[in-house]
């Protein structure tokens, strides 16, 4: 298992957002998380690279507990630099891209590897290959403000891939895009999945989930209500709430 989460809980100011999430992502598979807004999908995703601290439960990535280490009879939070080391193996793509606006496309991609101590020349070569892979080799010197939303998100994916992650997290990667730009980002993600990348994707693109996902997980009120192969979850779910949601979104 690449990701193994058990009983993950999280509350914001007394408001329970995650109420015991169990979820596993096998190696080299794509898991799509769907569900109504406010159901805790994004919060859960952010717990997987410790951008959010879970209040309880356990998240293992490639067998390693994320953000905490065993201490006495409990767990204690890791030092920042250890959390940073764990995060380097987990790529993250945000809904609103969060590219660094003062750096070029190439600069954005190179920043992570160079920060991790790789030689700049080597990181630049690899960044060029990644830009080529997301179809933006000719935009290497463009600043984010000079790129369309779809192009920015593709640079953001390349930036995450530059860390050579073993797991990629996508937090509604197409929700902030104009409809005609969604396809180019989904194409890149399809290519990644075909290359065997392990992916955990929070999305509203049910067509994408049906086509690419090995497993679809339906979140509702901070819990996994049901999960299974996309054909079943998206066409004949067990639970009426899932049926309702799928009918409304499709």
């Amino acid at each position: 298992m690449m990701v193994q989460a058990t009983g993950v809980r999280k509350a914001f100011a007394g408001q329970e957002v995650l109420r015991g999430v169990d979820l596993s992502v096998p190696r080299a598979t794509v898991t799509c998380v769907i569900g109504p807004s406010g159901s805790g999908k994004s919060t859960f995703l952010r717990c997987v690279n410790h951008l959010e601290r879970p209040d309880g439960g356990r998240i293992l990535v490639d067998g390693e507990p994320i953000g905490y280490e065993p201490y006495g009879r409990g767990l204690r939070e890791l030092r920042r630099r250890d959390v940073a080391r764990q995060r380097r193996q987990i790529g993250m793509v945000f809904q609103r891209f969060h590219l660094f606006p003062h750096l070029t496309a190439l600069g954005n991609i190179v920043e992570g590897p160079v920060g991790a101590g790789r030689p700049r020349a080597e990181a630049t070569d690899e960044a060029m290959a990644l830009l080529d892979r997301v179809g933006l080799a000719d935009r290497r010197d463009a600043y984010p403000a000079q790129l369309s939303g779809g192009q920015q998100q593709r640079v953001a994916i390349a930036r995450a891939l530059a860390m050579r992650p073993k797991l990629m997290l996508f937090d509604e990667p197409t929700s902030a895009l104009d409809p005609e730009l969604v396809g180019e980002v989904l194409d890149v993600m399809r290519g990644l999945a075909a290359d065997g990348m392990t992916m955990l994707v929070v999305t509203h693109e049910l067509a994408f989930a049906r086509e690419v996902a090995d497993e679809v997980v339906f979140f509702d009120e901070g819990r996994v209500l049901e999960s299974g192969p996309p054909e079943r979850i998206l066409t004949a779910p067990d639970h009426p709430r899932t049926r309702d949601f799928v009918k409304r979104v499709l």
Binding site: L51, A84, R87, M92, H98, G112, G115, R159, M163
Partner: peptide, 8 residues
Amino acid sequence: AAEALGLS
């Protein structure tokens, strides 16, 4: 974004 990249 910087934290997710594991920058110090």
